[in-house]
Simulated assay, not measured.
Amino acid sequence: MSVCDAVFDQQDAEVVCRELDCGAPVQVLGAAAFDKGDTQMWTQEIQCRGNESQIHLCPKSPSYENNCSHENNIGLVCAENMKVRLVGGNNSCAGRVEVLHRGQWGTVCQEDWDMTEAAVVCRELDCGEPVDALGSAYFGQGSGPIWSRIMLCTGSESTLKFCGSVEWGFYDCDHSKDAGVICSDKKNVRLVGGNSRCAGRVEVLHRGQWGTVCHDFWDLADAAVVCRELDCGEPVDAVSDAHFGPGSGPIWVNTILCAGSESALKNCGSSGWSIHVCTHSMDAGVICSGHTPSRLVNGPHLCSGRLE
């Protein structure tokens, strides 16, 4: 959905740039600065305080009426923080380290690359603890620029861009020396068998093995915790009787007792892990609302454009 420039201000911009991990807002532009677009217009007034993590969490005025057209689409330019991704591994928490710098993805040289730097990458990507710091293009050779010869992290930084470095854009290295990382991946819950990642049979990683949860006393409070842990919006339904098909392997817990405010399922009370009297015909499931993140469209880079 496009947003009208009459209902958008600097505080709203701060939330969008934060949601997109694009730094601080640099400029808020009206009058369809990044083209008109053809999506449906947002009709409510957005009233962000500026500290929300996502724009869909901001208060909105239900009674606001406007005569906006696509001539009034809001545009936004954010500072564009450096970003990091892991490429070539078997999941998003393992792979060749690639850094977005000056609008282009490039790699990092293995020289002095160790667990200290790996810890920062894992933290930045919300991937748990570092398992290994690798060189010699372990996950295959990258392409494009090699952005840094040496990263100088202490290990406590929240993002790789806060580490010291030796000569960004220094090319005394080749892609056979690309650095890589394996992180533990702290997600201990997943939904299986649904039509999206936000719906399915609840499976929990416990003692290194994925298993299911019995549906005894399974309710919306438990579902709310799963949806929150997976960043899947609000709970729509807490289903039972193997609604998404029976799982396999261990049934890890008979009864989960969540208040609904916990950040992770393993923080909830329970009848005891590895204790159950269920079969997989009683596997619990969840349907979450999911949410569509904001995006910036038609700008010169991913941190500027028309807000949708």
Rank of each mutant, 00 (worst) to 15 (best):
G23F: 03
E65P: 02
D219R: 08
V87R: 14
N188R: 15
G30K: 05
G75D: 02
N51S: 14
C278I: 10
V97T: 11
N90D: 12
N298H: 13
L307H: 02
I55M: 07
L152Q: 15
H291P: 00
S196V: 12
C58P: 03
V131Q: 13
F170T: 05
Y171K: 09
V226C: 08
N73A: 15
E98Q: 09
S69R: 11
N298S: 15
S261H: 14
G269H: 09
L86Y: 08
G299L: 00
E71W: 07
K83G: 04
F8N: 04
Y171H: 12
Y138W: 13
V202W: 15
E71M: 09
R96W: 12
E19Y: 01
H206T: 02
P300F: 03
C258E: 00
V3M: 06
D114T: 05
I256V: 15
N188E: 15
V253M: 03
K60Q: 14
S176N: 12
W168L: 12
Q11K: 11
G144I: 06
T279Q: 12
V28R: 13
D21R: 13
C127T: 05
D132N: 11
M282Y: 15
Q104G: 02
C232D: 11
S261E: 15
L302N: 09
A264I: 00
D231L: 05
V3S: 09
G269F: 08
K177W: 13
M282L: 14
G88T: 11
Q40M: 08
C278L: 14
D126F: 06
I287L: 14
M1G: 09
A119E: 00
C278N: 07
T116Q: 02
G140T: 12
R49F: 07
G155R: 06
G140A: 10
L134K: 05
P293G: 08
E80C: 09
E157F: 03
K83L: 12
V297S: 07
G200L: 03
P130Q: 06
A259L: 10
S156H: 07
P59V: 02
G193K: 01
D21F: 00
N51Q: 07
D283I: 07
N188G: 11
N267L: 13
C227Q: 03
S248N: 15
S196L: 12
R18G: 01
P145C: 02
C183K: 01
D21N: 12
Q104I: 07
G272V: 10
G135T: 13
G140V: 13
D231N: 12
K161R: 15
W168Y: 08
G290D: 07
C258P: 00
V189Q: 05
V239L: 15
P300T: 11
L302Y: 10
C268E: 03
S156W: 04
S263K: 06
I256T: 05
K60H: 04
G23M: 05
W218K: 09
L265K: 02
F170R: 14
Q44F: 08
S271Q: 07
A284C: 07
E14K: 14
S304D: 02
W105Y: 07
L160D: 09
V7G: 09
N267F: 12
F139M: 04
A31N: 14
A6I: 14
Y171M: 10
D241C: 06
C109S: 05
A221N: 15
G233L: 09
A264V: 00
W252R: 05
D21E: 09
G164Y: 04
A221Q: 13
V236Q: 10
G272N: 08
W105F: 11
K83F: 00
H280D: 03
D216W: 12
N81K: 13
R149V: 13
L100W: 06
G305D: 01
